[in-house]
Design a binder for these strands. Structure first.
Lengths: 219, 219
DNA sequence: TGCGTCCGGTCAGGTTGTCGGCAGGTCGGC
DNA sequence: GCCGACCTGCCGACAACCTGACCGGACGCA
């Protein structure tokens, strides 16, 4: 896995470089926002980006936004300064991103990076023109894109992960509520409905059809 | 998932039938080795077989061996009698198989069955161009596919499991209504009719013909 | 601190598809 | 022809599903 690190403090940059290399990853290091944009742009191969919020030339969030609008969809782990409020990020960071407060535990940071990578690896595209972007919880088609809530996204992902196959209701529950929460049957219906509505709103070529008594299937 | 259950004790058969159905699976039930061979043969759509060791007409291990040499590769979960030594099976059962001692915990048995499923999913093909796909709950031919309801699927699976041979009406009932529900003779006719209609709608090369006074046969 | 918004989950009521069975027609064997 | 077995069209009951609305909690904002 290739990890892009954007951090101005040379000591932290070296620390991360060594730790990530030791954990079996490759590292691309940038020391400010401009370099990050050059190295981690859309056609870069980075799988995850570690982004410091407090950069000398700009704010890490702005850099990330620039990366996003350049087409980079890799998930981002933010390094926030001590005392930085988490919620200051929430309005900005898309659902798939994460944040770690300095001073951080290196092992924990690496664990989070690897967790990100597992999620973000497949910007899964259902064969016919529907793109599921886990980094942003966004669904894209030729005619537009729409934002899904986390639960909606998991429901859709569960069903589109097996195109043409029937996904049982219980499978959907297991995928969308991985903590084993007990939800009523009707809750599934509600989310299916919401997802369907959003798919229609972007003229999705993929539709969720119900197989009565069994589950759902996409085509 | 389609689970084949071979068990002579009607109470246990019903228990398993109900529990598996409740867990979202389909069940094909056989009450002895001969029937198991007929229903769970190489061309059957079963994904997993639950096999009682102590059957009236033969040993479950022998039945399994017969299934294997007939080309059936689905994994098997053995039900062993109380006190049966597990190592008695070890020399025989192939790597993918499992065993559960009676009296068993239903939840545990189902968990093991589902674990099996994740390994081998396969699609059964009746010799000439008719595909029974349990994952998609559909039958496919060259000219199209059609969605079957759960009961229709079980009925068709029971009959196509032995191409060219006559399947008795009572066998169809046992396979399609594994919970032991009592259905009128006419209900079978209704479902046969529905299945036939759907087969015709996809130009199926396989047809269900009736053998008066005995049962049905596909060719 | 109070207000507005979003999200997740549930509820009640309407709608639809499946299932099982009935009634009557048809077929085949004797 | 007669009888039983089977086919066919159809219908009612019921469960599964869809839909719109609602509510509490979390969170942002002023």
């Amino acid at each position: 896995m290739l990890v892009g690190v954007c951090e101005d403090d040379a000591a932290i940059r070296r620390l991360l470089g060594r730790a990530l290399t030791y954990a079996g990853h490759e590292v691309l290091a940038a020391h400010d926002g401009r370099e990050a944009l050059r190295l981690f742009g859309a056609d870069s191969a980075v799988d995850v980006v570690v982004m410091d919020i407090g950069l000398p030339d700009s704010d890490g969030r702005d850099v990330t936004q620039a990366l996003r609008s350049a087409g980079q969809t890799a998930p981002v782990v933010f390094l926030t300064a001590l005392g930085e409020r988490h919620d200051r990020l929430s309005g900005f960071s898309s659902g798939g991103d994460d944040y770690v407060a300095k001073p951080f535990d290196v092992a924990e940071l690496i664990a989070r990076i690897e967790a990100m990578e597992r999620r973000g690896r497949h910007v899964s595209t259902v064969s016919t023109g529907l793109v599921l972007d886990p980094a942003g919880h966004v669904v894209r088609t030729d005619s537009g894109e729409v934002l899904l809530t986390p639960t909606e996204f998991r429901v859709l992902a569960a069903i589109t992960s097996r195109p043409g196959e029937v996904v049982r209701r219980r499978t959907v529950v297991a995928a969308a509520w991985p903590d084993g929460a007990l939800v009523s049957e009707n809750t599934i219906d509600s989310f299916i409905r919401r997802v369907r509505t959003k798919l229609v709103s972007v003229d999705s070529p993929v539709t969720i059809e119900t197989v009565r008594g069994v589950g759902f299937r996409c085509r």
